[in-house]
Design a protein around this nucleic acid. Structure first.
Lengths: 135, 135
DNA sequence: CTAAAACCTGACGTTGACGTGAGAGGCAAA
DNA sequence: TTTGCCTCTCACGTCAACGTCAGGTTTTAG
């Protein structure tokens, strides 16, 4: 398939796909006229790239981990880096879970407040709380 | 406390704290000479800001959600936005969990490969796999 | 008193993952 | 052949969350 279809099927922009190639993340065969041509497997591969980006990995990091992910080829050093990344993701998950719970309690608290009409004001606010809205 | 101590206690840079103030995220009293002075509660507040940043919220978004988080003051619209953010975080957690599992299986697979000395090569590689390293 | 350390306000620099044209060529349908 | 969409390669623009440097004031330690 050509780049437009790959973009449509993965949901990423054509520009982004070219950028991935520029970064060494995504190879493409070229037709005699220079147009990129991708196998079907590229769809999954692009989705994986997106996942890794979402996990906070940089292009550079992904490139370095690629031989392991794609071929199963690994050096001990590569495996260590992979494990590090996995642990980082675990920490992210833990942090996000915390944040989620905090947001949840804020939501329930604010909902209760709204329903009861109360407004529990803190004494000293270390933040620009919109206290006087009548101005 | 002054800005240096707040920075030390939160682990964020002095520059970042000034940036937070610039964005309306963090208020400070000023001494006659213009130096910022923060209450102890600022430490927790800054940590919360960091959490929300880590969850992918922008300064602008955090500012908009602040009255709710800080005072418990909420409009229905604000509550809806909070709920949306919480759901976004849930999706992030789900995605990260996926990625983590994928990395895990890559790790175990590559480890096995390394131990058995096998190298399972894919047929068509949609990526620049380092195939010929003898060059 | 004085020197070092901490603080202040601008204001320009950085980085990553693209967006956004410009200008030119390629490809299937009518 | 012409039309219209797709694709190509530069190459500059963007945006957020700061980093960093300059030049000056304030606080603190000795």
């Amino acid at each position: 398939m050509r780049i437009g279809e790959l973009a449509a099927r993965t949901g990423v922009s054509v520009r982004a796909l070219r950028y991935y190639e520029e970064q060494g993340l995504l190879a493409a065969e070229r037709s005699p006229s220079g147009q990129r041509h991708y196998p079907d497997s590229a769809v999954d591969w692009v989705r994986l790239i997106q996942q890794l980006y979402a996990a906070g990995l940089s292009s550079k990091t992904i490139v370095e981990l690629m031989p392991c992910v794609v071929d199963g080829r690994a050096t001990p050093e590569l495996l260590a880096r992979l494990a590090t990344q996995r642990d980082d993701i675990d920490k992210q998950i833990a942090g996000l879970t915390d944040t989620r719970n905090r947001l949840d309690s804020v939501i329930t608290g604010a909902t209760t407040n709204m329903l009861t009409g109360q407004s529990c004001r803190a004494k000293d606010a270390p933040h620009p709380s919109a206290q006087d809205e009548r101005a």
